[in-house]
Amino acid sequence: MVEPIHVDHSIPASYGFIIHTSKGAIVYTGDLRAHGPRKEMTEEFAEKARESEPIAMISEGTRMVEVEKRKNYSELEVEKLSNEIVSATKKIVFVTHYGRDMDRFRTFYNVAKNNDRKIVISPKTAHLLSKLVEDKRLHLPDPMKDETILVYYKRKKTGSFQEKDYYVWEREFMDKMVNYEFVHEHQSRIVMDLDFYQFAELIDIRQDPDSHFIHSMSEPYSEEDIEDAVMHNWLRHFKIKFHQLHASGHMNRRRLTDLINHIEPKQIFPIHTENPKLFKKINEHAHLVKYGKRYTI
Protein backbone atom coordinates (compact mmCIF):
# COMPACT_ATOMS: atom_id res chain seq x y z
CA MET A 1 0.00 0.00 0.00
CA VAL A 2 1.22 3.48 -0.84
CA GLU A 3 0.20 6.15 1.68
CA PRO A 4 0.52 9.78 0.50
CA ILE A 5 1.05 12.45 3.16
CA HIS A 6 1.04 16.15 2.39
CA VAL A 7 4.22 18.17 2.99
CA ASP A 8 5.07 21.85 2.80
CA HIS A 9 6.92 22.86 -0.37
CA SER A 10 7.10 25.88 -2.66
CA ILE A 11 4.34 24.58 -4.95
CA PRO A 12 0.89 23.23 -3.99
CA ALA A 13 -0.01 19.54 -3.84
CA SER A 14 3.40 18.27 -2.72
CA TYR A 15 3.52 14.90 -1.02
CA GLY A 16 5.81 12.51 0.77
CA PHE A 17 4.96 8.82 0.76
CA ILE A 18 5.07 5.81 3.04
CA ILE A 19 5.24 2.59 1.03
CA HIS A 20 4.02 -0.29 3.14
CA THR A 21 5.59 -3.60 2.04
CA SER A 22 5.71 -7.13 3.41
CA LYS A 23 9.24 -6.41 4.66
CA GLY A 24 8.39 -3.11 6.31
CA ALA A 25 7.78 0.53 5.45
CA ILE A 26 9.80 2.60 2.98
CA VAL A 27 9.59 6.38 3.42
CA TYR A 28 10.04 8.81 0.54
CA THR A 29 10.34 12.47 1.49
CA GLY A 30 9.58 14.07 -1.86
CA ASP A 31 10.59 17.76 -1.88
CA LEU A 32 9.79 19.36 1.46
CA ARG A 33 10.59 22.17 3.86
CA ALA A 34 9.77 23.18 7.43
CA HIS A 35 10.06 26.98 7.17
CA GLY A 36 7.05 27.72 4.96
CA PRO A 37 3.50 28.79 5.82
CA ARG A 38 2.28 25.17 6.02
CA LYS A 39 5.12 23.66 8.01
CA GLU A 40 2.60 21.71 10.10
CA MET A 41 2.07 19.43 7.09
CA THR A 42 5.76 18.49 7.07
CA GLU A 43 5.58 17.89 10.82
CA GLU A 44 2.63 15.55 10.29
CA PHE A 45 4.60 13.65 7.65
CA ALA A 46 7.57 13.35 10.02
CA GLU A 47 5.43 11.89 12.79
CA LYS A 48 3.70 9.35 10.55
CA ALA A 49 7.00 8.38 8.97
CA ARG A 50 8.53 7.79 12.40
CA GLU A 51 5.53 5.72 13.54
CA SER A 52 5.95 3.46 10.49
CA GLU A 53 9.44 2.39 11.76
CA PRO A 54 10.87 2.44 8.22
CA ILE A 55 13.38 -0.10 7.00
CA ALA A 56 14.51 2.45 4.41
CA MET A 57 14.16 6.14 3.60
CA ILE A 58 14.52 7.75 0.18
CA SER A 59 15.49 11.33 0.97
CA GLU A 60 15.87 14.48 -1.07
CA GLY A 61 19.04 16.48 -0.41
CA THR A 62 18.85 19.64 -2.48
CA ARG A 63 20.44 21.77 0.23
CA MET A 64 22.69 19.08 1.71
CA VAL A 65 25.96 21.01 1.42
CA GLU A 66 29.08 21.48 3.56
CA VAL A 67 28.59 25.25 3.81
CA GLU A 68 25.53 27.04 2.51
CA LYS A 69 26.67 30.20 0.74
CA ARG A 70 23.23 31.39 -0.34
CA LYS A 71 21.02 33.44 1.93
CA ASN A 72 17.63 31.84 2.44
CA TYR A 73 14.75 33.27 4.41
CA SER A 74 11.47 31.96 5.74
CA GLU A 75 8.34 32.97 3.85
CA LEU A 76 7.44 35.38 6.66
CA GLU A 77 10.88 37.00 6.40
CA VAL A 78 10.49 37.42 2.64
CA GLU A 79 7.19 39.19 3.22
CA LYS A 80 8.59 41.41 5.98
CA LEU A 81 11.67 42.48 3.99
CA SER A 82 9.68 42.97 0.78
CA ASN A 83 7.21 45.12 2.66
CA GLU A 84 10.08 47.29 3.92
CA ILE A 85 11.28 47.85 0.35
CA VAL A 86 7.83 48.70 -1.01
CA SER A 87 6.78 50.93 1.88
CA ALA A 88 9.99 52.96 1.63
CA THR A 89 9.66 53.93 -2.04
CA LYS A 90 7.31 55.77 -4.36
CA LYS A 91 8.82 53.97 -7.36
CA ILE A 92 7.49 50.86 -9.05
CA VAL A 93 8.64 47.55 -7.55
CA PHE A 94 9.13 44.61 -9.91
CA VAL A 95 9.20 41.07 -8.52
CA THR A 96 10.02 37.69 -9.95
CA HIS A 97 9.48 34.20 -8.57
CA TYR A 98 8.83 30.65 -9.74
CA GLY A 99 5.53 30.66 -11.61
CA ARG A 100 3.95 27.81 -9.63
CA ASP A 101 5.06 29.10 -6.24
CA MET A 102 1.70 30.24 -4.91
CA ASP A 103 3.07 30.92 -1.43
CA ARG A 104 5.38 33.52 -2.97
CA PHE A 105 2.57 34.96 -5.06
CA ARG A 106 0.49 35.28 -1.88
CA THR A 107 3.43 36.98 -0.16
CA PHE A 108 3.74 39.66 -2.85
CA TYR A 109 -0.03 40.00 -3.08
CA ASN A 110 -0.10 40.76 0.66
CA VAL A 111 2.77 43.25 0.32
CA ALA A 112 0.97 45.08 -2.49
CA LYS A 113 -2.31 45.17 -0.60
CA ASN A 114 -0.67 46.30 2.65
CA ASN A 115 0.83 49.26 0.78
CA ASP A 116 -2.35 50.19 -1.09
CA ARG A 117 -0.87 49.08 -4.40
CA LYS A 118 -2.12 46.88 -7.20
CA ILE A 119 -0.27 43.70 -8.08
CA VAL A 120 0.13 43.27 -11.83
CA ILE A 121 0.48 39.69 -13.05
CA SER A 122 0.72 37.90 -16.39
CA PRO A 123 -2.21 36.13 -18.08
CA LYS A 124 -0.41 32.84 -17.40
CA THR A 125 -0.37 33.51 -13.65
CA ALA A 126 -3.99 34.68 -13.78
CA HIS A 127 -4.95 31.45 -15.56
CA LEU A 128 -3.22 29.33 -12.92
CA LEU A 129 -4.86 31.30 -10.12
CA SER A 130 -8.29 30.89 -11.72
CA LYS A 131 -7.89 27.11 -11.46
CA LEU A 132 -6.30 26.93 -8.01
CA VAL A 133 -8.78 29.34 -6.43
CA GLU A 134 -11.31 26.50 -6.54
CA ASP A 135 -9.31 24.80 -3.77
CA LYS A 136 -10.40 26.82 -0.72
CA ARG A 137 -7.57 25.36 1.38
CA LEU A 138 -5.02 27.33 -0.62
CA HIS A 139 -6.56 30.70 0.35
CA LEU A 140 -5.80 32.35 -2.98
CA PRO A 141 -7.55 35.44 -4.43
CA ASP A 142 -9.74 35.21 -7.51
CA PRO A 143 -8.03 37.16 -10.33
CA MET A 144 -11.38 38.08 -11.85
CA LYS A 145 -12.96 39.39 -8.65
CA ASP A 146 -10.11 40.72 -6.54
CA GLU A 147 -9.62 44.48 -6.93
CA THR A 148 -5.94 44.27 -5.98
CA ILE A 149 -5.10 42.15 -9.06
CA LEU A 150 -4.54 43.52 -12.56
CA VAL A 151 -3.37 41.53 -15.59
CA TYR A 152 -0.60 42.78 -17.88
CA TYR A 153 -0.96 42.25 -21.62
CA LYS A 154 1.96 42.60 -24.02
CA ARG A 155 1.43 43.84 -27.54
CA LYS A 156 0.87 41.00 -29.99
CA LYS A 157 0.04 40.68 -33.68
CA THR A 158 -1.80 43.96 -34.48
CA GLY A 159 -0.11 45.71 -31.57
CA SER A 160 -3.40 47.36 -30.61
CA PHE A 161 -4.50 45.02 -27.79
CA GLN A 162 -7.44 43.54 -29.69
CA GLU A 163 -9.09 40.40 -28.38
CA LYS A 164 -8.17 38.48 -31.53
CA ASP A 165 -4.46 39.11 -30.80
CA TYR A 166 -4.50 36.69 -27.89
CA TYR A 167 -5.01 33.00 -27.26
CA VAL A 168 -8.51 31.97 -26.17
CA TRP A 169 -7.34 31.22 -22.61
CA GLU A 170 -5.76 34.68 -22.35
CA ARG A 171 -8.93 36.51 -23.37
CA GLU A 172 -10.72 35.46 -20.18
CA PHE A 173 -8.88 38.15 -18.18
CA MET A 174 -9.12 41.10 -20.56
CA ASP A 175 -11.57 42.88 -18.24
CA LYS A 176 -8.60 43.24 -15.86
CA MET A 177 -6.20 44.25 -18.63
CA VAL A 178 -3.48 46.87 -18.24
CA ASN A 179 -0.64 47.62 -20.62
CA TYR A 180 2.70 49.43 -20.63
CA GLU A 181 1.02 52.85 -20.72
CA PHE A 182 -1.00 52.16 -17.58
CA VAL A 183 2.06 50.83 -15.76
CA HIS A 184 4.14 53.87 -16.75
CA GLU A 185 1.46 56.27 -15.53
CA HIS A 186 0.83 54.50 -12.20
CA GLN A 187 4.31 53.44 -11.13
CA SER A 188 3.94 54.47 -7.51
CA ARG A 189 0.79 52.36 -7.13
CA ILE A 190 2.08 49.09 -8.57
CA VAL A 191 3.97 45.92 -7.67
CA MET A 192 4.56 44.12 -10.98
CA ASP A 193 5.45 40.49 -11.61
CA LEU A 194 8.21 40.61 -14.23
CA ASP A 195 9.90 37.37 -15.21
CA PHE A 196 13.07 37.00 -17.26
CA TYR A 197 11.23 36.66 -20.57
CA GLN A 198 9.29 39.89 -20.01
CA PHE A 199 12.30 42.17 -19.57
CA ALA A 200 11.81 43.64 -23.05
CA GLU A 201 8.62 45.24 -21.70
CA LEU A 202 10.85 47.64 -19.77
CA ILE A 203 11.55 49.39 -23.07
CA ASP A 204 7.89 50.42 -23.35
CA ILE A 205 7.17 50.82 -19.64
CA ARG A 206 9.98 53.39 -19.24
CA GLN A 207 10.05 53.16 -15.47
CA ASP A 208 11.72 55.86 -13.39
CA PRO A 209 15.40 55.36 -12.43
CA ASP A 210 16.07 53.81 -9.00
CA SER A 211 13.01 51.61 -9.16
CA HIS A 212 13.30 48.22 -7.46
CA PHE A 213 13.51 44.58 -8.52
CA ILE A 214 13.02 41.78 -5.98
CA HIS A 215 14.52 38.52 -7.23
CA SER A 216 12.72 35.84 -5.23
CA MET A 217 14.29 32.76 -6.77
CA SER A 218 17.46 30.75 -6.14
CA GLU A 219 20.71 32.51 -6.75
CA PRO A 220 22.80 31.26 -9.72
CA TYR A 221 24.93 28.15 -9.23
CA SER A 222 27.98 29.76 -10.81
CA GLU A 223 29.33 33.10 -11.95
CA GLU A 224 29.00 31.83 -15.51
CA ASP A 225 25.20 31.71 -15.36
CA ILE A 226 24.28 33.41 -18.64
CA GLU A 227 20.66 34.15 -17.75
CA ASP A 228 21.72 35.81 -14.52
CA ALA A 229 24.27 37.95 -16.36
CA VAL A 230 21.67 39.03 -18.92
CA MET A 231 19.19 39.90 -16.16
CA HIS A 232 21.72 42.14 -14.43
CA ASN A 233 22.59 43.81 -17.75
CA TRP A 234 18.92 44.78 -18.15
CA LEU A 235 18.71 46.05 -14.58
CA ARG A 236 21.88 48.12 -14.87
CA HIS A 237 20.75 49.61 -18.16
CA PHE A 238 17.43 50.75 -16.68
CA LYS A 239 19.00 51.76 -13.34
CA ILE A 240 16.87 49.36 -11.31
CA LYS A 241 17.95 48.38 -7.79
CA PHE A 242 18.36 44.62 -7.25
CA HIS A 243 17.26 42.76 -4.09
CA GLN A 244 17.73 39.03 -3.46
CA LEU A 245 14.95 37.65 -1.20
CA HIS A 246 14.11 33.96 -1.44
CA ALA A 247 12.61 31.25 0.74
CA SER A 248 13.71 27.85 -0.54
CA GLY A 249 11.30 24.98 -1.13
CA HIS A 250 13.79 22.62 0.55
CA MET A 251 15.16 21.92 4.03
CA ASN A 252 18.70 22.99 4.82
CA ARG A 253 21.26 20.48 6.05
CA ARG A 254 20.55 20.97 9.75
CA ARG A 255 16.81 20.56 9.43
CA LEU A 256 17.09 17.58 7.09
CA THR A 257 19.52 15.94 9.51
CA ASP A 258 17.04 16.51 12.35
CA LEU A 259 14.25 15.03 10.23
CA ILE A 260 16.24 11.88 9.41
CA ASN A 261 17.30 11.42 13.04
CA HIS A 262 13.68 11.84 14.14
CA ILE A 263 12.33 9.26 11.66
CA GLU A 264 15.19 6.80 12.38
CA PRO A 265 15.27 4.79 9.15
CA LYS A 266 17.51 1.71 9.06
CA GLN A 267 18.89 2.71 5.63
CA ILE A 268 18.99 5.92 3.60
CA PHE A 269 18.93 6.32 -0.16
CA PRO A 270 19.78 9.96 -0.94
CA ILE A 271 18.50 11.40 -4.23
CA HIS A 272 18.12 14.87 -5.75
CA THR A 273 21.46 15.89 -4.26
CA GLU A 274 24.97 16.79 -5.34
CA ASN A 275 26.46 15.63 -2.04
CA PRO A 276 25.21 12.11 -1.21
CA LYS A 277 28.34 11.38 0.83
CA LEU A 278 27.21 13.86 3.48
CA PHE A 279 24.36 11.49 4.33
CA LYS A 280 27.00 9.04 5.61
CA LYS A 281 27.61 11.47 8.46
CA ILE A 282 23.97 11.05 9.50
CA ASN A 283 23.58 7.33 9.00
CA GLU A 284 26.37 4.84 8.30
CA HIS A 285 23.90 2.82 6.25
CA ALA A 286 23.40 5.57 3.69
CA HIS A 287 23.83 4.33 0.11
CA LEU A 288 25.56 6.22 -2.68
CA VAL A 289 22.83 5.63 -5.23
CA LYS A 290 23.94 4.82 -8.77
CA TYR A 291 21.73 5.52 -11.76
CA GLY A 292 20.11 2.40 -13.19
CA LYS A 293 21.18 0.11 -10.36
CA ARG A 294 18.57 -2.04 -8.61
CA TYR A 295 18.63 -2.13 -4.81
CA THR A 296 17.16 -4.92 -2.70
CA ILE A 297 16.05 -4.21 0.84
Rank of each mutant, 00 (worst) to 15 (best):
1 M>E: 11
2 V>D: 14
2 V>F: 12
3 E>C: 15
8 D>H: 12
10 S>C: 14
11 I>W: 13
12 P>A: 10
12 P>H: 14
17 F>C: 12
17 F>K: 09
22 S>F: 11
22 S>Y: 06
23 K>F: 13
23 K>C: 13
24 G>N: 15
24 G>P: 13
32 L>E: 12
32 L>K: 12
32 L>Y: 08
33 R>A: 11
33 R>G: 15
38 R>W: 15
38 R>S: 14
41 M>F: 14
41 M>R: 14
42 T>G: 07
49 A>D: 05
51 E>P: 02
54 P>A: 02
58 I>W: 06
60 E>T: 08
64 M>C: 07
70 R>N: 04
72 N>S: 12
73 Y>P: 13
76 L>Y: 15
80 K>D: 11
81 L>N: 04
81 L>E: 11
83 N>W: 08
84 E>N: 11
90 K>N: 14
91 K>P: 07
94 F>H: 03
94 F>D: 03
96 T>W: 03
97 H>G: 06
98 Y>N: 08
99 G>N: 13
100 R>Y: 12
101 D>I: 07
101 D>Y: 12
102 M>N: 07
110 N>W: 12
110 N>D: 14
112 A>P: 14
112 A>Y: 15
114 N>C: 09
114 N>D: 12
115 N>A: 10
120 V>H: 10
122 S>H: 05
122 S>I: 04
122 S>K: 04
122 S>Y: 05
127 H>V: 03
127 H>C: 05
129 L>C: 05
129 L>S: 09
132 L>I: 09
133 V>W: 15
135 D>H: 06
138 L>Y: 09
139 H>E: 10
139 H>S: 10
140 L>R: 06
142 D>Q: 09
144 M>E: 08
144 M>Q: 06
147 E>K: 07
152 Y>G: 00
154 K>P: 01
154 K>I: 01
155 R>K: 05
156 K>E: 04
156 K>F: 01
156 K>Q: 00
160 S>N: 09
163 E>T: 12
163 E>L: 07
167 Y>R: 14
168 V>H: 15
169 W>Y: 15
175 D>G: 09
176 K>W: 04
177 M>N: 00
177 M>V: 02
179 N>E: 00
184 H>C: 01
184 H>F: 01
188 S>L: 02
189 R>Q: 12
192 M>G: 01
195 D>E: 05
195 D>M: 05
196 F>R: 05
199 F>T: 00
209 P>N: 09
212 H>Y: 09
214 I>R: 02
215 H>M: 02
216 S>F: 03
217 M>C: 03
219 E>N: 01
220 P>A: 02
220 P>K: 00
228 D>E: 09
229 A>T: 11
231 M>G: 03
232 H>M: 14
232 H>A: 02
236 R>T: 10
241 K>M: 14
242 F>V: 05
243 H>P: 07
245 L>E: 11
247 A>Q: 03
249 G>A: 15
249 G>Q: 14
251 M>K: 10
254 R>K: 15
254 R>F: 12
260 I>P: 13
261 N>P: 09
262 H>V: 07
265 P>K: 07
267 Q>F: 10
267 Q>C: 03
268 I>G: 03
271 I>E: 05
271 I>W: 07
279 F>C: 01
280 K>P: 07
281 K>G: 09
282 I>Y: 02
283 N>W: 04
290 K>V: 03
292 G>L: 02
296 T>Y: 08
